[in-house]
Amino acid sequence: MDKDSRIRDTQNRIKDVFKKRQQKALSTNHATAVIKDGLTCTFTQGEFSAVMDMPAIMGGDAAGPTPGFFARAGIAGCVSIGIKQTAVMAGAVFDTVTVDIETDFDDGAAMGLGDASAAPLETRLAIRISTNLPAPEVFALVEKALSMDPWFLALRDAQHVKFNLIVDE
């Protein structure tokens, strides 16, 4: 069985489960980030972990990519995978999906300088697809994929974010 057929079969099975039992489509992911010494942070979710740090110029040890690296990787990866999945489910062949991401920042705001927000100023995605399909069909599939992409939507749309503080004494 080729990869596209396996993807389509697997996703059709899970979609059937979600149609029959809508509550199965709801999920919560729990993950933990821990910093003990310096700025090196270990993030763990299930069996996977990643190390993040800041560059030396920011006081870190450069023991891993910055958190922003992983945020951009998550968005670009989610978008590219979502586009490929959407194409496969539609029976379309996308030979290559490439997503470039650029994000503008006010780094002074991230250091508490001035009144500007530390939120990214703008994020731009450049999506390149290698396929034999006509551009209007590709555009429609990409629009459909983006309308269902959790991390594209999280970046694009405001969402409610809350925190709970626990102080260990």
Rank of each mutant, 00 (worst) to 15 (best):
K3Q: 07
K3V: 09
K3P: 00
K3H: 12
D4H: 13
D4E: 13
D4P: 04
S5M: 07
R6F: 14
R6M: 11
R8F: 01
R8M: 05
D9Q: 09
D9R: 09
T10L: 08
Q11E: 02
Q11R: 01
Q11I: 05
R13M: 05
R13W: 06
I14Y: 04
I14K: 00
I14D: 00
I14G: 01
K15R: 12
D16H: 02
D16Q: 07
V17L: 13
V17F: 02
F18P: 00
F18K: 00
F18I: 03
F18W: 08
K19N: 04
K19V: 08
K20E: 13
K20M: 06
R21P: 00
R21E: 10
R21L: 11
R21N: 12
R21V: 14
R21F: 11
Q22G: 15
Q23P: 00
Q23G: 10
K24L: 10
K24Y: 01
K24Q: 02
A25P: 00
S27N: 13
S27Y: 14
T28M: 10
T28I: 12
T28Y: 04
T28D: 03
T28L: 09
N29Y: 14
H30L: 10
A31G: 15
T32L: 06
T32Y: 02
A33G: 14
A33M: 03
A33H: 05
V34G: 02
V34A: 08
I35L: 07
I35D: 02
K36I: 09
K36P: 09
K36S: 14
K36N: 13
D37T: 11
D37V: 03
D37M: 02
D37H: 05
G38M: 04
G38W: 06
G38C: 08
G38R: 04
G38A: 04
L39A: 10
L39F: 15
L39K: 13
L39M: 13
L39S: 09
T40R: 14
T40H: 01
T40M: 13
T40Y: 04
T40K: 08
C41N: 11
T42N: 08
T44W: 01
T44Y: 08
Q45F: 12
Q45I: 14
Q45S: 15
